[in-house]
Design a protein around this nucleic acid. Sequence first.
DNA 1: CGGTGTGAAGCGCTTCACAGCG
DNA 2: CGCTGTGAAGCGCTTCACACCG
Lengths: 221, 221
Amino acid sequence: MADRISAKTVGRLSLYRRLLTNRRQQQGDRHVYSHELADMASVTAAQVRRDIMAVGYSGSKSRGYEIETLLARINAFLDSPRPQRVALVGVGNLGRAVLAFFSGRRPNLKIVAAFDKDPHKIGRVIMGCRCFAIDDLEAVVSETGIWSAIIAVPAGDAQDVADRLVRADVRGILNFAPIPLHLPPATYVEDIDFTMSLDKVAYFSRRNGHVVRQAAGGASS
Amino acid sequence: MADRISAKTVGRLSLYRRLLTNRRQQQGDRHVYSHELADMASVTAAQVRRDIMAVGYSGSKSRGYEIETLLARINAFLDSPRPQRVALVGVGNLGRAVLAFFSGRRPNLKIVAAFDKDPHKIGRVIMGCRCFAIDDLEAVVSETGIWSAIIAVPAGDAQDVADRLVRADVRGILNFAPIPLHLPPATYVEDIDFTMSLDKVAYFSRRNGHVVRQAAGGASS
DNA sequence: CGGTGTGAAGCGCTTCACAGCG
DNA sequence: CGCTGTGAAGCGCTTCACACCG
C-alpha cells in the first residue's frame, strides 16, 4: 500500500469496487483479469494494474485477481475502520435526491444528520435522516463526530455554510453549490457543478467533428 | 480563438462566465484583472490568462479585461448560435432536482423534453417541461433536433438509454448513472458519479494529515 | 503463450518567468 | 511600475514495453 495516492486513483478504486461487487453478485466469477476490469471501467489495463498496485495487492500471474480478496483490500484501503458519518446541509430538491440516493446503501458511510433553515423540515425524519435547524450545525456536527459534509444549499449561502462546517472540524466537503469555496488548504473539497458539466456537454455536442477521450472526474468515450 | 480546446478549459470558461455575470450585476465593475478572476475561481492568474487566450480575447495591458466584452466573447465561444435543446431521461428524485435546477436559467440551453416509463408522469408537464413515454424517445429526440441529453435513470437502464440516445443522434451525454457507458468515440460523455465523489471526500477527510490541491472536474482547496 | 508488475517514456495541463506595453 | 501574452520548463498522470512467471 504505497505512499500518497492521487484523488483520481481513489475515484477509480471506488468505481472498481462497485463494478466488482456487481459482478460477483450477478455472475459467480471468482477471478478477473486487469483487461476485463479495464473494459468494465472504460480505462486501460495498465491503469487498472497501477491502481491495484497502489492498494498493495498482487494478483496471480495466470489467473488474474481474486475478486474476493481484491475487494477486501480495496475496502480496507478506502473505508475507515469505524463507520463514517456524513452531514447534509440543505434539504431542497437536490438534498432530498442525494438523501434518497445514498439511503441504506452503505453501512460504513452514512448520512446521519441533515440541516435546513425551513422550520417545516426541522425535527422531521426525511428518508431515515433526522433534520436539524441550521443554527445547530456546529453543535450537532461536533458532538456527532462528523468529518465529511455535503453542501446542497443555494450559491449565496454556500461559503458561509462551508466556513461553519470547517469550524466544526469537518475535513472534507462535497459541494453542489455552483461557486468555488475558499477554505483552508487542509480541507478537501470535491465540486459537482451541474452548470459547468452541462455546458461542457453542450459545447462538445456541437463539435460534431470527432472527439476526444477525456479522463477523470470527467468525461470519456 | 485557438485550435482545439480541452474540456477543462471549457469547464473553467463556463465558471468564469458565471462569476463575471454575478460580479457585473452585484458590483458595477467594468474591468477585471486576471488575478482577481483567478481568486474568484480559485485558480492561478496564469491559468486565467491562458484560458482567455483560448477564446481569442485580449485585455488591456493596464486595465485588465473589459468584463462586458469578455463575457460576449465567452458566450460566443461556448454557446451555440441558435438555442440548444436538451433531453432528460428519468424523472425520479434526481431528474426532478435537475429539472428544477436548470429551469428558466438559460434561454440558450433548455431542457425541452423529459422521458420516463412511469405512466403517471407521461403527458404531464413537470417544472415547465413536457414528459413523454420512454418508448417515444427516438422519435421525439430526432424530431425536436436534440443534440444533448441527461441520463438520470437507474444503473441497470443507463446503457440501454444511452444506446437509444446515440441512435437518435445525440452527441453529448451528461450521465448521472453510476456506471461507465460504452459508446462510440464520437460521443462526448460527462459523468457525475455521486458515490465516487463521496468516497473521495470520505477518504481524504480521514487523511487528517494535510492535503492536496486537486484540479479540475474535481477537487480543490 | 497470456497473464502481472513496473521502469521509463510520453503527453497534456499548469506554472514560471519574462518581454513588452500603457 | 503592474499588467497581459506567451515560450519554455515543470509536473503528474497515463501508457508503453518488456522482464518475469505459471
